[in-house]
Amino acid sequence: MRRSKLQTALIVAIMAILLVWTMFPFYWMLVTSIKENNEIYSPLATLWPRTFTLRHWAELLNRTPFLVHFRNSLIISGTTTLLSMAIGSLAAYAIARLQFRGRSVMARSLIYSYLVPPAVLFIPLFQLLGALDLLNSMQGLVVAYLTFTVPFCTWLLVGYFKTVPVELEEAALVDGCTPINTLLRITLPLSAPAMVVVALFSFTLSWNEFLYALTFTTDKNVQPVTAGLSGMAVEDVFFWGRMMAAAAVGSLPPIILYTAAQRYVVRGLTLGAVKG
């Protein structure tokens, strides 16, 4: 499409505003984390640090349980991802391919389950996990996170499995392959893009979750990064240098994953309802 100079100028101007608005908080996060305290709390904000220091980063690693929280986040998100991929692909295969009563009810209840907000579920889940003796444990958080990853994974995979040619699977079944082998050897390899999407979202949604982590864990040894951050303020006093260093590290895993898998993102954003 041809554009006039005025249109081009307008596009460039709006883009510039959007980029500054989007990126400035990230810039300020990083820059704060390498400033000396007297500069951070000086009455005059400096856009570029007068002196550089890694003091806050060292403090973050040595004096706070941040590394433990980071490890916990990795364990919790990783386990949730693996479990939800396994549970999701089994169920999705049955719903997409096998014949049994209740398939369509299940498809519908998957969406409903996905949409039930954590604000409604967190209080009864708090009781349930308490009854199962899973409060203050990483297992408990994994169970809680499965409530949003499993419906998500299953629904997306049902949609994708339906696009995989059924003939290959039928041939395998005729050759005496069991359904589980057909799923593992034929359907899953052919569904690699969908598996990337569900793994990406299961991991990042778990990594970013806060309400369950805040409510179900108080022990620093099992808390993930999101809940740990809110414990870093002492009596409502913030050490902003340290805090922004933690913010930067805590943002890194999801940023890396979303950036690497950029072209798969749209499919996952709306449960596949908007085709990318």
Partner: peptide, 13 residues
């Protein structure tokens, strides 16, 4: 992409 908590803390600063 980043956790809401981290976005919110950054803005609080």
């Amino acid at each position: 992409s980043i956790p809401v908590v981290i976005g919110a803390y950054t803005w609080r600063w």
